[in-house]
């Protein structure tokens, strides 16, 4: 037990085991997309839960982020007489990074926790075993509709966040920083490229998969009653938040590294 090499080995093996289990879990969840029966009603319910009911929190966060971004960038650029770049910085930051990341972090807190708690409670109260005895595959019933809903809902939310984030910057730019409305919008549109938005939406789809996967996986594997469900909920939010930031870097490298 005192051998540090053995301790490191145990940690590495344990990490490999968890990654392997998670990968198999994800593959099984995805494989049910191709095999009937399909639970359209459950998918729609999850889509509404993620896309519609997350709109207020994502919208508010995006507006305030755009507002703060305009204020901060103006303060910084004013030192170099480059205030005109505010619109450019706001739109690029929002569409490429802040829109996808902040919206996803908000959804991770709301949906990741909710999925982990709901599925975890079902696990510890035998409801998942009951599904099996009722001729229903729990992965197909619980996990697959959520994964699909997450992948489709997050790009929609990020598109909304992009629009509202830019609007937040425009609001501050025109009411507080003295920009002309038409020239601010023109600068915004001049610098915006299709790839900026598309990369953000692609990131959102990946983040949506990560959030729903971690929520489902932590819940599905929870053990030990209320404490276990609480631990699963915490793990789902923490793990998906870290993975969102890690995948953000990887995807940014893929899209924009030269």
């Amino acid at each position: 037990m005192l051998n540090p090499v053995a301790a490191i080995g145990r940690v590495v093996l344990s990490a490999c085991r968890v990654v392997g289990e998670l990968a198999l879990f994800a593959l099984e969840g995805l494989s049910h997309l191709l095999r009937p029966p399909f639970y359209a009603r459950l998918f729609l319910r999850q889509l509404i839960e993620i896309a519609y009911f997350s709109l207020p929190v994502v919208s508010l966060t995006a507006i305030f982020t755009g507002m703060v971004l305009a204020l901060q960038s103006y303060t910084g650029f004013a030192r170099f007489n480059a205030e005109g770049a505010v619109a450019n910085v706001v739109v690029l930051s929002i569409t490429r990074e802040l829109g996808p990341v902040i919206a996803s972090l908000m959804v991770a807190g709301r949906i990741g926790a909710s999925f982990a708690a709901e599925i975890g409670t079902m696990r510890v109260t035998d409801q998942i075993d009951a599904l099996t005895t009722l001729s229903t595959n729990p992965m197909k019933y619980l996990v697959t509709p959520r994964l699909l809903a997450g992948v489709l809902a997050l790009p929609f939310l990020v598109l909304v966040a992009d629009i509202l984030g830019v609007m937040g910057g425009w609001l501050i730019g025109t009411t507080k920083l003295g920009f002309n409305s038409a020239s601010y919008l023109k600068a915004t549109m001049d610098f915006l490229e299709v790839m900026d938005v598309v990369s953000g939406l692609a990131k959102a789809a990946v983040f949506g998969f990560v959030i729903t996967l971690m929520g489902c996986w932590c819940g599905y594997n929870s053990r030990g009653g209320a404490q276990g469900v609480g631990a699963a909920t915490t793990s789902a939010v923490v793990a998906s938040s870290i993975l969102i930031l890690a995948f953000d870097y990887i995807l940014t490298e893929m899209f924009f590294a030269r």
């Binding site: 109260t125 035998d126 409801q127 009951a130 005895t133």
Partner: peptide, 17 residues
């Protein structure tokens, strides 16, 4: 075979949703 089997769980295990 599972289609021909029924199960009553100790705590009911009813789907609360």
């Amino acid at each position: 075979l599972n289609d021909r089997i029924g199960m009553l769980f100790q705590n009911g295990a009813l789907f609360d949703s």
